[in-house]
Protein backbone atom coordinates (compact mmCIF):
# COMPACT_ATOMS: atom_id res chain seq x y z
CA UNK A 1 0.00 0.00 0.00
CA UNK A 2 1.31 3.39 -1.00
CA UNK A 3 -0.04 5.10 2.11
CA UNK A 4 2.24 3.25 4.56
CA UNK A 5 5.30 5.53 4.28
CA UNK A 6 3.13 8.60 4.96
CA UNK A 7 1.25 6.76 7.71
CA UNK A 8 4.58 5.80 9.30
CA UNK A 9 5.85 9.37 9.07
CA UNK A 10 2.65 10.73 10.63
CA UNK A 11 2.85 8.31 13.55
CA UNK A 12 6.51 9.18 14.12
CA UNK A 13 5.66 12.88 14.19
CA UNK A 14 2.70 12.28 16.48
CA UNK A 15 4.70 10.27 19.01
CA UNK A 16 7.74 12.53 18.93
CA UNK A 17 5.78 15.42 20.39
CA UNK A 18 4.99 15.91 24.06
CA UNK A 19 1.29 16.40 23.18
CA UNK A 20 0.83 12.69 22.46
CA UNK A 21 2.39 11.54 25.73
CA UNK A 22 0.59 14.13 27.83
CA UNK A 23 -2.74 13.20 26.19
CA UNK A 24 -1.95 9.47 26.59
CA UNK A 25 -1.09 9.85 30.29
CA UNK A 26 -4.04 12.11 31.07
CA UNK A 27 -6.44 9.71 29.31
CA UNK A 28 -5.13 6.66 31.19
CA UNK A 29 -5.10 8.51 34.49
CA UNK A 30 -8.73 9.63 34.18
CA UNK A 31 -9.94 6.25 32.88
CA UNK A 32 -7.90 4.48 35.60
CA UNK A 33 -9.47 6.67 38.28
CA UNK A 34 -12.98 5.91 36.94
CA UNK A 35 -12.14 2.19 36.72
CA UNK A 36 -11.03 2.15 40.37
CA UNK A 37 -14.18 4.03 41.34
CA UNK A 38 -16.53 1.62 39.55
CA UNK A 39 -14.69 -1.47 40.83
CA UNK A 40 -14.73 -0.28 44.44
CA UNK A 41 -18.40 0.66 44.18
CA UNK A 42 -19.34 -2.82 42.92
CA UNK A 43 -17.10 -4.50 45.52
CA UNK A 44 -18.77 -2.44 48.26
CA UNK A 45 -22.25 -3.38 47.05
CA UNK A 46 -21.26 -7.05 46.77
CA UNK A 47 -19.89 -6.99 50.30
CA UNK A 48 -23.05 -5.38 51.66
CA UNK A 49 -25.67 -7.34 49.70
CA UNK A 50 -23.86 -10.45 48.40
CA UNK A 51 -24.07 -11.24 44.68
CA UNK A 52 -25.96 -8.25 43.26
CA UNK A 53 -26.96 -10.10 40.09
CA UNK A 54 -25.27 -7.41 37.98
CA UNK A 55 -22.56 -8.56 35.65
CA UNK A 56 -19.17 -6.80 35.87
CA UNK A 57 -19.66 -6.07 32.17
CA UNK A 58 -22.62 -3.85 33.07
CA UNK A 59 -21.47 -2.55 36.44
CA UNK A 60 -17.87 -1.71 35.48
CA UNK A 61 -17.12 -1.89 31.77
CA UNK A 62 -20.33 -0.45 30.34
CA UNK A 63 -20.02 2.64 32.54
CA UNK A 64 -16.27 2.86 31.89
CA UNK A 65 -16.68 2.76 28.11
CA UNK A 66 -19.34 5.47 28.26
CA UNK A 67 -17.01 7.65 30.31
CA UNK A 68 -14.10 6.89 27.96
CA UNK A 69 -16.27 7.89 24.98
CA UNK A 70 -16.88 11.32 26.56
CA UNK A 71 -13.21 11.78 27.55
CA UNK A 72 -12.09 10.88 24.02
CA UNK A 73 -14.55 13.41 22.61
CA UNK A 74 -12.35 16.08 24.21
CA UNK A 75 -8.96 14.40 23.66
CA UNK A 76 -9.28 13.23 20.04
CA UNK A 77 -9.29 16.81 18.68
CA UNK A 78 -5.83 17.19 20.26
CA UNK A 79 -4.67 14.38 17.99
CA UNK A 80 -6.43 15.57 14.83
CA UNK A 81 -5.92 19.35 15.07
CA UNK A 82 -2.37 19.04 13.73
CA UNK A 83 -3.08 16.72 10.81
CA UNK A 84 -3.72 19.26 8.02
CA UNK A 85 -3.65 22.61 9.84
CA UNK A 86 0.04 22.19 10.68
CA UNK A 87 0.86 21.34 7.05
CA UNK A 88 -0.95 24.50 5.99
CA UNK A 89 0.80 26.66 8.60
CA UNK A 90 4.25 25.34 7.70
CA UNK A 91 3.47 25.65 4.01
CA UNK A 92 4.12 21.94 3.43
CA UNK A 93 0.62 21.12 2.24
CA UNK A 94 1.40 22.00 -1.38
CA UNK A 95 4.54 19.89 -1.09
CA UNK A 96 2.49 17.02 0.33
CA UNK A 97 0.06 17.28 -2.54
CA UNK A 98 2.92 16.75 -4.95
CA UNK A 99 3.72 13.35 -3.34
CA UNK A 100 3.14 10.31 -5.58
CA UNK A 101 -0.12 9.82 -3.69
CA UNK A 102 -3.54 10.96 -4.70
CA UNK A 103 -5.61 13.17 -2.38
CA UNK A 104 -7.68 10.23 -1.14
CA UNK A 105 -4.55 8.32 -0.13
CA UNK A 106 -3.20 11.36 1.73
CA UNK A 107 -6.49 11.67 3.65
CA UNK A 108 -6.57 7.96 4.39
CA UNK A 109 -2.99 8.05 5.68
CA UNK A 110 -3.79 10.99 7.95
CA UNK A 111 -7.01 9.31 9.15
CA UNK A 112 -5.29 5.96 9.79
CA UNK A 113 -2.43 7.58 11.71
CA UNK A 114 -4.88 9.25 14.11
CA UNK A 115 -6.87 6.02 14.32
CA UNK A 116 -3.70 4.06 15.15
CA UNK A 117 -2.97 6.59 17.90
CA UNK A 118 -6.40 5.92 19.42
CA UNK A 119 -5.77 2.16 19.25
CA UNK A 120 -2.46 2.72 21.08
CA UNK A 121 -4.33 4.80 23.69
CA UNK A 122 -6.87 2.04 24.25
CA UNK A 123 -4.48 -0.94 24.29
CA UNK A 124 -3.38 -0.62 27.95
CA UNK A 125 -7.05 -0.63 29.06
CA UNK A 126 -7.21 -4.36 28.17
CA UNK A 127 -5.20 -4.88 31.37
CA UNK A 128 -8.31 -3.83 33.35
CA UNK A 129 -10.28 -6.82 32.06
CA UNK A 130 -7.36 -9.17 32.75
CA UNK A 131 -7.27 -7.86 36.32
CA UNK A 132 -11.04 -8.20 36.81
CA UNK A 133 -11.06 -11.73 35.41
CA UNK A 134 -9.37 -12.94 38.59
CA UNK A 135 -12.49 -11.99 40.55
CA UNK A 136 -15.44 -12.32 38.16
CA UNK A 137 -16.07 -13.88 34.75
CA UNK A 138 -15.49 -11.58 31.79
CA UNK A 139 -17.78 -11.88 28.77
CA UNK A 140 -15.17 -11.49 26.05
CA UNK A 141 -17.74 -11.14 23.26
CA UNK A 142 -19.27 -8.17 25.11
CA UNK A 143 -15.84 -6.64 25.66
CA UNK A 144 -15.01 -7.05 21.95
CA UNK A 145 -18.29 -5.28 21.07
CA UNK A 146 -17.48 -2.44 23.46
CA UNK A 147 -14.03 -2.00 21.86
CA UNK A 148 -15.54 -2.16 18.37
CA UNK A 149 -18.04 0.52 19.36
CA UNK A 150 -15.45 2.88 20.82
CA UNK A 151 -13.22 2.44 17.75
CA UNK A 152 -16.10 3.31 15.41
CA UNK A 153 -17.00 6.27 17.61
CA UNK A 154 -13.38 7.50 17.63
CA UNK A 155 -13.28 6.98 13.85
CA UNK A 156 -16.15 9.48 13.63
CA UNK A 157 -14.39 11.90 15.99
CA UNK A 158 -11.25 11.69 13.82
CA UNK A 159 -13.16 12.19 10.56
CA UNK A 160 -14.77 15.34 11.97
CA UNK A 161 -11.39 16.49 13.35
CA UNK A 162 -9.66 15.91 10.03
CA UNK A 163 -12.28 17.96 8.23
CA UNK A 164 -11.94 20.82 10.75
CA UNK A 165 -8.16 20.63 10.44
CA UNK A 166 -8.27 21.16 6.67
CA UNK A 167 -10.27 24.36 7.07
CA UNK A 168 -7.66 26.37 8.91
CA UNK A 169 -3.94 26.76 9.54
CA UNK A 170 -4.53 27.35 13.24
CA UNK A 171 -4.46 24.16 15.32
CA UNK A 172 -6.38 25.74 18.23
CA UNK A 173 -9.14 26.84 15.89
CA UNK A 174 -9.26 23.32 14.38
CA UNK A 175 -9.46 21.67 17.84
CA UNK A 176 -12.11 24.11 19.10
CA UNK A 177 -14.20 23.66 15.98
CA UNK A 178 -13.97 19.85 16.30
CA UNK A 179 -15.00 19.91 19.96
CA UNK A 180 -17.86 22.29 19.09
CA UNK A 181 -19.20 20.02 16.33
CA UNK A 182 -18.82 16.85 18.41
CA UNK A 183 -20.51 18.44 21.42
CA UNK A 184 -23.31 19.55 19.12
CA UNK A 185 -23.66 16.01 17.77
CA UNK A 186 -23.79 14.71 21.34
CA UNK A 187 -26.13 17.29 22.87
CA UNK A 188 -28.57 17.24 19.97
CA UNK A 189 -30.28 14.30 21.71
CA UNK A 190 -30.93 16.51 24.76
CA UNK A 191 -32.67 19.05 22.58
CA UNK A 192 -34.70 16.13 21.19
CA UNK A 193 -35.72 15.05 24.68
CA UNK A 194 -37.19 18.45 25.45
CA UNK A 195 -38.86 18.70 22.05
CA UNK A 196 -42.67 18.73 22.27
CA UNK A 197 -42.97 16.45 19.26
CA UNK A 198 -42.23 12.77 19.85
CA UNK A 199 -41.17 12.22 16.25
CA UNK A 200 -38.56 15.01 16.50
CA UNK A 201 -37.11 13.48 19.61
CA UNK A 202 -36.63 10.21 17.69
CA UNK A 203 -34.99 11.99 14.73
CA UNK A 204 -32.67 14.10 16.90
CA UNK A 205 -31.89 11.06 19.06
CA UNK A 206 -30.84 9.23 15.92
CA UNK A 207 -28.47 12.07 15.02
CA UNK A 208 -26.73 11.93 18.40
CA UNK A 209 -23.25 10.49 18.14
CA UNK A 210 -23.23 9.00 21.66
CA UNK A 211 -26.74 7.50 21.52
CA UNK A 212 -25.51 5.05 18.90
CA UNK A 213 -22.75 3.92 21.23
CA UNK A 214 -25.22 2.67 23.85
CA UNK A 215 -25.96 -0.69 22.19
CA UNK A 216 -22.22 -1.40 21.76
CA UNK A 217 -21.63 -0.63 25.43
CA UNK A 218 -24.30 -3.20 26.37
CA UNK A 219 -22.71 -5.88 24.19
CA UNK A 220 -25.35 -5.65 21.45
CA UNK A 221 -24.42 -5.26 17.78
CA UNK A 222 -27.02 -3.26 15.89
CA UNK A 223 -26.65 -2.72 12.14
CA UNK A 224 -28.25 0.72 12.37
CA UNK A 225 -25.56 1.91 14.83
CA UNK A 226 -22.73 0.45 12.74
CA UNK A 227 -24.00 2.12 9.57
CA UNK A 228 -24.44 5.44 11.41
CA UNK A 229 -20.74 5.60 12.30
CA UNK A 230 -19.55 4.30 8.93
CA UNK A 231 -21.69 6.81 7.01
CA UNK A 232 -20.58 9.66 9.29
CA UNK A 233 -16.91 8.77 8.71
CA UNK A 234 -17.56 8.45 4.98
CA UNK A 235 -19.29 11.83 4.80
CA UNK A 236 -16.58 13.81 6.62
CA UNK A 237 -13.75 12.08 4.72
CA UNK A 238 -15.55 12.91 1.48
CA UNK A 239 -16.01 16.60 2.30
CA UNK A 240 -12.35 16.80 3.38
CA UNK A 241 -11.33 15.21 0.10
CA UNK A 242 -13.43 17.68 -1.87
CA UNK A 243 -11.86 20.50 0.14
CA UNK A 244 -8.35 19.30 -0.64
CA UNK A 245 -9.17 18.83 -4.29
CA UNK A 246 -10.19 22.45 -4.67
CA UNK A 247 -6.55 23.53 -4.69
CA UNK A 248 -7.37 26.91 -6.12
CA UNK A 249 -9.28 27.61 -2.92
CA UNK A 250 -6.15 26.82 -0.90
CA UNK A 251 -4.16 29.12 -3.14
CA UNK A 252 -6.56 31.99 -2.52
CA UNK A 253 -6.50 31.50 1.22
CA UNK A 254 -2.73 31.72 1.54
Amino acid sequence: MKIFPLLNKELKIAFSSATAYVTFTVFLLIVGYLFVGQSLMLAKESFAYGATGTSVMDAIFRVLFHDAAVILLFLTPAMTMRLLAEEKRAGTLELLLTYPLNDLEIILAKFCSAFASVVIFLLPTILYSIFIQRFAPIEWSVLATQYLGILLLCGSYIAVGLWASHLTDNQIVAATLTIGILLGLWLIAWIGQSSPLASWSVVLGQLSILNHFDSFSKGVLNTSDITFYLLLILFFLYVTLKGLESRSWWGRSE
Binding site: S46, D58, R134, F135
Partner: peptide, 21 residues
Protein backbone atom coordinates in the same frame (compact mmCIF):
# COMPACT_ATOMS: atom_id res chain seq x y z
CA UNK B 1 -27.43 -12.41 35.40
CA UNK B 2 -25.89 -15.16 37.46
CA UNK B 3 -22.86 -13.36 38.76
CA UNK B 4 -20.86 -14.31 41.79
CA UNK B 5 -20.28 -11.64 44.42
CA UNK B 6 -17.43 -9.33 43.36
CA UNK B 7 -15.30 -9.16 46.48
CA UNK B 8 -11.93 -7.46 46.77
CA UNK B 9 -9.58 -7.92 49.73
CA UNK B 10 -7.07 -5.32 50.93
CA UNK B 11 -4.22 -6.73 48.81
CA UNK B 12 -6.40 -6.74 45.68
CA UNK B 13 -7.45 -3.13 46.29
CA UNK B 14 -3.80 -2.07 46.59
CA UNK B 15 -3.02 -3.93 43.37
CA UNK B 16 -6.02 -2.30 41.69
CA UNK B 17 -4.80 1.18 42.71
CA UNK B 18 -1.20 0.44 41.67
CA UNK B 19 -2.25 -0.94 38.29
CA UNK B 20 -4.82 1.70 37.38
CA UNK B 21 -3.32 4.86 38.84
Amino acid sequence: TETPAFLLDQVSIIRLLLLSL
